[in-house]
Simulated assay, not measured.
Amino acid sequence: MMDAIIHTFLDLVAPPFTFFTLLFVLPPLRIFKFFLSILGALFTEDVAGKVVLITGASSGIGESVAYEYAKRGACLVLAARREKSLEEVGERALYLGSPEVLAVRADVADPDDCRSLVDRAINAFGRLDHLVNNAGIMSVAMLDQVHDVTDFREIMDINFWGSVYMTRFAAPYLRASGGRIVAVSSAGAWLPSPRMSFYNASKAALFQFYETLRVEFGGDIGITLVTPGIIESELTQGKYFTSQGRLVVDKHIRDVEVSLTPIESVERCAKAIVKSAVRGEAYLTEPAWFRTTFFWKVFFPELVEWLYRVMCVSGGAIDGNEDDEVEEPLGKRVLDYTGAKSVLYPDSLDATDPKTD
């Protein structure tokens, strides 16, 4: 009986209290954070000579983030599964200003590889200052088309557990240096993009994992939680797992998924990530305008769901890759008929195919 009274009381009190908070607390808090951001811009961390470990560094955001840290004079430990591509990134990072680069072939889905990767970084440099958890893969499939859901365990193993392993093994060294974790989640953590349920779930898990670690770490280890929108990368070049769990490149399906959303260049995104990290910022959504999608989802969830269905799902069926039948929705048709892709997508996006070595 008492618990019913308590919860009824809270049901009545919580909404007006929330409204009061938004009306009177949020504005001064935003002003305070604005001044903090100015201070952050004036007193940025100097990473020259410091050690930065980056996963998923052989391409995309991870590759470009490595170049941005290199330009600032950081020592780099680069990790990915593609050794040849990784070595090429390392050579360019040295050219751009990194005093020393260690390239390590590693699979973040393997906890032993993650432990060994951190150990090699410490053995080589004696310290660790920034950990950039960037490694990730994507799947594109309607749940009803998935033949065996266990084929998609790798999405969670890499996107979520890979960051968990790396964080656990690196945490003692980051704590000792007063270091920082840069965790690359995604706006997919809150946006219900169709055909991306496994990917979105992995990024939502990653987001909440680091939100909780903020409380656990306190001020010992800084966390910059990055939620990119649609960024130029192998993912937006059409590389993903099909409904049968096979890795393919299909730019047609990419156009269905991305639709009329502008794609930001990977160089611009990487610059924003490193700038945010050295400023000690807690959150970064890039491009900045993409932050508004969070509020759309919070305040107008039905509208967001309707727009996704109309723009990315509804329409006549067409053939996608050999595994999946994909509908050609309104967004894809508008993209084709208007030629909007030449304006919304970077010229460099399809200049080269995703790396496969």
Results as ranks from 00 to 15, higher is better:
L117S: 06
G280K: 07
S314W: 13
S58P: 02
E211P: 04
Y337D: 13
L78V: 07
K71P: 11
P15T: 12
Y69P: 02
T21M: 07
F299D: 01
R309L: 13
A93C: 13
V13A: 12
C114M: 11
P111M: 14
G320C: 07
T236H: 00
F34S: 14
Y283L: 11
S139Y: 08
D11G: 15
I263E: 00
G56W: 05
I31E: 05
T261C: 02
M138K: 05
M1K: 09
P28Q: 07
R81E: 13
R105C: 14
F20H: 09
L23R: 15
G62Y: 01
I273F: 03
V140E: 14
G60Q: 00
A170R: 02
F20M: 07
D336W: 00
P329N: 07
R105G: 11
G179D: 14
E322Y: 02
K271W: 05
V140T: 15
G73S: 08
M1P: 10
F207Q: 11
S64R: 00
L86S: 03
F9K: 10
V118Q: 10
T293Y: 06
L191H: 08
S59A: 11
T285V: 04
I61E: 04
Y69E: 05
A340Q: 00
A109T: 09
E302V: 12
V51R: 00
D357R: 14
E63D: 04
I155H: 01
A66P: 15
L10G: 10
V248M: 02
P228K: 02
E232W: 03
D324G: 10
W190L: 11
L53R: 01
L12E: 08
M142V: 04
E267Y: 04
K239W: 06
E154M: 12
I6Q: 12
W289R: 01
N123K: 06
F209Q: 05
G60A: 01
G218P: 09
S59K: 02
F24C: 06
R279N: 05
L247R: 10
V140G: 13
L39F: 08
I253V: 12
K33P: 01
M166K: 05
E328H: 10
F43S: 04
L29M: 06
S98W: 08
D324Y: 02
L174D: 10
Y173T: 00
P301S: 09
A171I: 10
A74V: 06
A57F: 09
I253N: 08
D151M: 06
V25R: 14
V258A: 03
L117M: 08
G40C: 07
G229H: 02
A70R: 00
E305N: 11
G90L: 05
G222F: 14
A66F: 05
D11E: 13
V104S: 04
N321M: 06
D319R: 15
L102D: 13
F217W: 15
S243D: 03
G162R: 05
A170P: 05
R115P: 00
Q237K: 04
A57R: 03
T224Y: 13
S185C: 07
Y240G: 04
S59D: 11
M311H: 01
V47N: 06
P99E: 11
A201Y: 11
L284T: 00
